[in-house]
Design a protein around this nucleic acid. Structure first.
Length: 301
DNA sequence: ACCAGTCAAGGAAGC
DNA sequence: GCTTCCTTGACTGGT
């Protein structure tokens, strides 16, 4: 089974490999030089941790890894707007990125990302749109530096956040989608929403975004349970599956007591309905939850 | 060393 | 309409 780790390894975290971040408030409160140095050191740390995690995934039989969206904090902030090359010791960061690139090449772990839940391509708020585009392009830049394919093999997964009139929202999406670079357009995929009564269930995503733009649809067990049009799970799985030109990367999670809150561990196992799929495991116990699924799978054999 | 509060985003949901 | 909620994990500052 192709399982994929989301962002954090609890095992490595225990060994001291932890991501670091920085808020804009903090950045702005420090003298410029110190702020930049702190930020640079944290970003360097984050790429080192990323390399460790990818190697660990490979060594543990985990076939995929979702990059943390907090890899390069603040640099996309509209009031900061830095590129990696602006940072002190940027050559160290680029060296580390090259190291991560080589680890990916050697291990063949499938790399993806799920940019912020707050990204929108349909908003009426121009700032929200430009912030979203900047954030997506930043992800693309990192993907390119890591030499990841400009295809859905390395997907950038986002949501259509806005509910309402499908036609209007779709039009708004297209307008902004066309502003994205080809590196983003070739990688972007759309995930079923998790809000009840949501407009963007898999059927509707298919009708608009796959049919008209060829964008693959990400099936997610939990979200599909919470947001669907009454069709069977397998029917939705198959429909989403049919939109991918490469092996799909779907999401597996279980809710606590019927809520969207993610459980610590899986009770069930991902059902791939006989197909080849990569599963992002969105469970709070991260690699420990994956380990458990893999060990149960082995017991079954 | 530890703990509680803070931070960030934009649409949803509630009043 | 306006406010609060949602979500997440690490930072921050006080003890």
């Amino acid at each position: 089974m192709n399982l994929s780790l989301c962002c954090i390894s609890l095992k490595l975290q225990e060994q001291g490999y932890k991501f670091q971040t920085m808020t804009y408030t903090r950045f702005a409160s420090l003298p410029r030089k110190e702020a930049l140095e702190t930020l640079s050191a944290r970003i360097l740390n984050n790429f080192e941790v990323t390399g460790e995690i990818i190697q660990y995934c490979h060594d543990s039989g985990i076939k995929g890894y979702r990059l943390s969206s907090g890899l390069t904090p603040i640099i996309n902030h509209p009031s900061v707007d830095l590129s990696l090359s602006d940072l002190p010791n940027s050559e160290k960061i680029y060296n580390e990125i090259t190291n991560v690139k080589n680890i990916i090449k050697n291990t063949k772990v499938r790399i993806s990302a799920h940019p912020s839940e707050y990204i929108t391509l349909t908003s009426n708020n121009d700032n929200a749109i430009s912030n979203s585009i900047r954030d997506l392009e930043q992800h693309g830049e990192i993907f390119d530096l890591l030499d990841l394919p400009k295809s859905h093999w390395s997907p950038l997964n986002i949501h259509v956040r806005q509910d309402g009139d499908s036609e209007e929202i779709f039009k708004s999406f297209v307008k902004n989608y066309l502003k994205l670079s080809s590196g983003i357009k070739n990688r972007i995929v759309l995930e079923v929403n998790d809000n009840k009564d949501g407009t963007w269930n898999i059927t509707n995503l298919y009708k608009y975004f796959y049919d008209k733009l060829g964008i693959p649809i990400t099936f997610d067990y939990l979200h599909n349970q919470l947001c669907n049009d009454g069709k069977s799970e397998q029917e939705m799985f198959d429909l989403a599956y049919s939109t991918w030109g490469v092996t799909p990367l779907f999401h597996y999670s279980e809710g606590v007591n019927g809520t969207r809150k993610h459980a610590d561990y899986a009770v069930g196992t991902p059902n791939s309905y006989g197909k080849e799929v990569y599963w992002d495991i969105e469970l709070k116990q991260k690699d420990l939850a994956i380990e458990k699924i893999l060990s149960q799978k082995n017991l079954d054999k």
